Computed example of a mutant assay.
Amino acid sequence: MTELILHHYAGSPFSEKIRLILGYKGLAWQGVTVPVICPKPDVLALTGGYRRTPFLQIGADIFCDSALIAEVVEARQPTPSLFPPETAGAERILAQWADRQLFWAAASYTLQPAGAAAIFAGAPPEFRAAFAADRALMTAGSERPSSLDAAAELHSYLSWLEHMLADGRPFLLGAAATLADFSVAQSIWFIRLAPPVASILEPHQRLSAWFERIAAFGHGQRGKSDSLAAIEIARSAGPQEPVNVQAGLGFEQGDKVQVNASDYARDPVCGELVGLNQSRISLRRVDERAGCVHVHFPRIGYALRKT
C-alpha cells in the first residue's frame, strides 16, 4: 500500500515535471491516466474536487500540487537531492518562478493557433472545443498573457536561462540538478511539443543542451494501473501520513474547512482539518467509493477557510 501512484496524462506539463523527477530519483511508480477535461468522477472520489494534474497517491494519502509532490518524493528517496545544501533555497525560488511566470508564458505562447494545431493534431474538433471550454472555466478571473505578450516574455526568460548556463555549468544552479531544473524543463518540454512555434528555442543552444541532459533522466520504472484499482487501494489502506494541527495558526484540529488554489482551478475541496503547519494543509474526507482519505496541499498557493 506504500507504492507511488501518479495520476497524470501524457500531455500534461506538470506531470512531465514529476515523471522526470521520478526518473532522476530512479523510483518505481504506477501510472493512472486521468481524463484531460471534466467530468472526472474517479478523481473526485480521491481528491474531493481538486482538478489539476497531476496528483500523487500513496495508499489513502493524496498529495496535490507538483511542489508538494516533489517534497514527498524527496522524502521517499533523498538522494540524489532536489534540494542540495549548496543551493541554499535558491532552487525553491527559481522553481516557483518557473511554475508560475515561465509556465504561463510558455503555455500561452505554445497554444497560439499554429502551436495548438500541432498539440491537438488528430483530435476531433469537438474535443478541441471541449478542451478550450474546460480551460476557460479553470482560468476564469485569472490574468493570462496574450500569445504576443507571452512571446515577448519568453524571449527574455529564455535569454536569462541561457545566461545562467554561460559559465559551462551542467545544470541551472551548478553541478547537480535541483527542483529548479525540473520546474523549468516542463515548459521547455511543452514548447517542443509544437514544432511550428518551437523555433523560439533555437537561439538558445546551451539551454537546449541542458534540456537534453534533463530529459536523459527518463521517467523511472513506470508501471500501469487504473483509477478503479487506485480507489480500491485507498479504501483498503487508510491514511498513513503523520498529521497534526500546529497551534497558533488560526485553526483547530477537526475544524470544517475548505481549500482552494489561489490562482486558477479554484474548485474547493472540503473536509475536516487534520493537519496544518507553515508548509502543508491536510484534510480528512470520507467518500462512499474511496473510504477515508487524507488530501494534502502545500500551504503556499492555497487558501484555507473555515466552512
Score class of each variant (00 low, 15 high):
residue 155 H to M: 12
residue 170 P to V: 04
residue 209 A to F: 10
residue 103 F to T: 08
residue 196 P to L: 04
residue 256 K to R: 15
residue 17 K to T: 08
residue 206 R to F: 03
residue 43 V to F: 06
residue 7 H to C: 15
residue 183 S to M: 06
residue 27 L to N: 08
residue 46 L to K: 06
residue 250 G to Y: 02
residue 119 I to A: 00
residue 160 W to C: 01
residue 147 S to M: 10
residue 111 L to I: 04
residue 43 V to Y: 10
residue 291 G to N: 02
residue 198 A to L: 11
residue 24 Y to Q: 12
residue 68 L to C: 12
residue 148 L to G: 07
residue 283 L to T: 12
residue 247 A to D: 09
residue 47 T to M: 12
residue 63 F to C: 13
residue 241 E to V: 15
residue 244 N to C: 11
residue 101 Q to P: 01
residue 270 C to L: 05
residue 169 R to N: 09
residue 173 L to T: 05
residue 138 M to R: 10
residue 162 E to Q: 05
residue 41 P to A: 07
residue 152 A to F: 05
residue 119 I to W: 06
residue 75 A to P: 05
residue 160 W to M: 02
residue 267 D to R: 09
residue 117 A to V: 00
residue 55 F to P: 00
residue 90 A to H: 07
residue 180 A to S: 12
residue 48 G to H: 08
residue 84 P to N: 12
residue 148 L to I: 05
residue 98 A to H: 01
residue 230 A to M: 06
residue 165 L to R: 00
residue 30 Q to V: 04
residue 137 L to A: 13
residue 103 F to V: 02
residue 286 V to R: 11
residue 45 A to H: 07
residue 155 H to C: 10
residue 137 L to V: 14
residue 262 S to Q: 14
residue 274 V to H: 00
residue 237 A to C: 11
residue 294 H to T: 15
residue 227 S to F: 14
residue 83 F to S: 09
residue 155 H to F: 12
residue 276 L to T: 11
residue 7 H to T: 13
residue 109 Y to H: 09
residue 205 Q to Y: 04
residue 246 Q to A: 12
residue 146 S to Q: 11
residue 70 A to W: 03
residue 175 A to P: 14
residue 91 E to R: 00
residue 303 A to C: 15
residue 216 A to W: 00
residue 16 E to D: 05
residue 207 L to H: 11
residue 286 V to W: 14
residue 76 R to L: 12
residue 190 F to S: 00
residue 274 V to T: 09
residue 74 E to N: 03
residue 270 C to F: 01
residue 98 A to W: 06
residue 109 Y to F: 15
residue 12 S to Y: 09
residue 135 R to W: 08
residue 197 V to D: 01
residue 59 G to Y: 00
residue 86 E to W: 07
residue 70 A to I: 06
residue 191 I to K: 11
residue 177 A to Q: 07
residue 161 L to I: 06
residue 294 H to Y: 06
residue 33 T to D: 09
